Simulated assay, not measured.
Amino acid sequence: MSDQCDLCLLGLIILSSLLTGTSGADRVFISSGVDVSLPCNKHLSDCKSTSWIYYNRFTEIVELITGGIKNKDTERHERLSLESDCSLNIKNVTEEDYGYYRCTQYVNGEQQGTDAYVYLHVLHVSVSPSSSSSSSSSQTEISPGRSVTLSCQLYSYFGFSCNFLVSYEGVELLWVNQAGVDLKTDSRYQISSSSSSSSSSPDHCIITLTTTLLDEDDNREWRCQLTVGNQVQTSVRYTVKYSGDPASGTAGLLYRVIVSIVEMAVFAAPTVILLQIICARRAGRKDSKPPEEIEMPTILQ
């Protein structure tokens, strides 16, 4: 019965947000891999009567914090902590953390003040499995000459479809370089936008970047940037680091030349020093007469 009431309340909040554009809930946009703090309306001197409830699906309601104590039955309890102002801190956010959060405070069955509602949207980048032999959430190792595809996805809660976020909220996803320039202006990049949805998940916004890597792309950084009303909210950085022998390709030729010059300098240095010593000694001999050429004093007869 309690779960049904929570679902009804959640449905009313989402309906209100769709009709009015505001619901009194905070909307937090964050990138995966960082820490985030979700605000709570603190009405008491401490947080012993504070509870945090998480809604990821209409059928999934999880109590993360109950009476100021973490629920150890949750998979991510080690990444959660309750701050002194009763806000919920989530370390190393993942794409699985997106959803709807509610902070409530009750004393003896009576609600204290108003609840705090937070919609957490998570921006995450992944690399195409066929593009790399070794990858992580922020870096991929690959060889030049191969094609790489990076997919940037915004994970949002039910009621915030991609079309709604783009059309009514002004949300936009972009791929930019280190200088913040939109890569759509560069013909070497193929960029496309789409959405993904299923019966068990909402309609997520996706923007992909595909390019063939050049020698000079080693350690190059690309960034998936999320803006709302032309204001940057968050971004995810992605760096390409080449694997294998660095002495390959055009960059490898330059690498070998530099190594050869350094080696020549190291081996030539002792020879140069020895020649300088020999020249200095010869110059010293010219400035002084040999012992046999020194005139002996005349002996008086």
Rank of each mutant, 00 (worst) to 15 (best):
G68F: 09
V28I: 15
S135W: 09
K48S: 15
T149M: 11
S130H: 07
G109D: 03
S45C: 02
S49G: 00
G109C: 05
S143N: 09
S135Y: 07
P39S: 09
S87I: 04
V36N: 04
N71H: 06
G113W: 12
S135Q: 12
Q153L: 03
Q105M: 09
Q105R: 09
Y117A: 11
I65T: 03
D26Q: 13
D46Y: 03
G113K: 10
S131M: 07
N41T: 06
T74I: 14
I142Y: 07
Q105F: 05
S126T: 15
E95C: 04
H121M: 10
V93T: 04
G21F: 08
D46E: 10
L44T: 13
T22V: 12
I69Q: 14
Y101L: 00
T94W: 08
G145Q: 04
Q111M: 13
S131L: 05
N92V: 01
Q139V: 14
V62I: 12
E141C: 09
E96M: 10
S81R: 13
K48G: 10
C86F: 13
V107M: 10
D35A: 10
L82E: 02
Y98E: 03
Y106I: 04
L88Q: 08
E95A: 09
S81W: 12
Q111C: 06
D26T: 06
S138E: 10
N41K: 11
G67M: 03
Y117P: 00
K91L: 09
A25W: 05
L120I: 05
A116R: 08
D46I: 01
Y55C: 00
C47H: 01
T114V: 08
I61D: 05
V107N: 06
G21D: 08
S130K: 08
S135G: 05
D35N: 15
V148F: 08
T114L: 13
C47W: 02
L88C: 04
Y98M: 03
C103V: 02
A25T: 01
Q112M: 14
G113E: 01
G24E: 02
K70F: 11
P144N: 06
S37Q: 12
S45Q: 11
C103A: 15
I53A: 05
Q139P: 00
R102M: 12
T114Y: 11
S138W: 12
V28D: 02
Y100H: 10
R146P: 00
R102G: 00
E63P: 07
S143Y: 15
T140H: 01
N108F: 14
C103L: 03
F58R: 05
S87H: 09
H124L: 00
V36A: 08
D35Q: 07
I142V: 15
C152S: 08
S31Q: 14
V93W: 13
N89M: 08
D73A: 13
L80M: 06
W52A: 01
V125K: 05
V36E: 05
D115K: 07
S51D: 09
Y54I: 00
I90G: 09
E78I: 05
N56A: 04
N41R: 07
